[in-house]
Amino acid sequence: MTPTSTDAVSGVPLPVAWNGLDLCVPAAWRPMRLGPGYLYLEDDRGPAFEVKWRRGAGRAGMKAALRALTPRGMATAGGVLPDAWLAALADFELMPLTWSRAGRTGLGAALFCPECGLAAVFQGYGGPDGPDAGRVAELAAVLGSLDHHRPGPPAFRVFGLSFAAPPGFALAGFHFAPGRFSLSLQQGRQRLDVVRLAPADVLLARDSLATVAALAFGLDPAVPATGGSLGAAPAVWLAERQGRGGLDGLARALGRPGRLAVLRHEAGVNKLLGAALRAPKPVDRDWLAEAAARCVSL
């Protein structure tokens, strides 16, 4: 989740969702590193909060996660968590941890949720004397907002993009670079790519929407494009090997999947948002339109 200037000024906590974990963080915090089950946030002073989780890992996963997340040989199980943190984590079994290295300290805990089997490790960063009172209060609020029992497929709300994965799809990869954030989700032999590009006016001053879409989804620019709209926004559709039979069917049968992509221009927020599905069968256009409509700018 990246804060808007209004939120940053008002200090309103911002919701962040990443691959099955939902939480609200202070407006000044920004995600700096992500992993399939990993989230690391910084504020202007440096590292602020880090959490790593795995579903169905069990109690053994709690210790493994602790070893994986903390500096090797530096972390020690033990320490005392602030009461506000303990209250926020009442639903978890927990094992406090603490470490100190090069003038920086970490205080956190390995967690285990007996209800769903999720194992996690979190830590809040602080100076040589540990997290200050302000950081402790911020972290209490963050931990209180932690939600991992949301039913349905994982949601994503980060880097200016909100997206709810279609049922059955799981995160397979992601990429962030200034101006571009993309997610790849997989279900069997189907792969759904979701992309958010900005600023749209600069991109569209150089190339057409169809060319930008082809480049964004890695399609041949010669792939036929059809204009249209998605919601109220102008959009372009690109179809590759989508014929029911003939050469397209033969190519798909020989292992070259078809692809259908749609990219829309949200002029109001100056962004391009879209989705592409790679599948061994022709893609249902309505299904993809519905999936692409779930890509919302933050």
Binding site: T2, G160, G179, P199, N270
Partner: peptide, 9 residues
């Protein structure tokens, strides 16, 4: 100028 997210900018 480009209506970008401040952190991304």
């Amino acid at each position: 100028r480009y209506n970008l997210d401040p952190a991304e900018a």
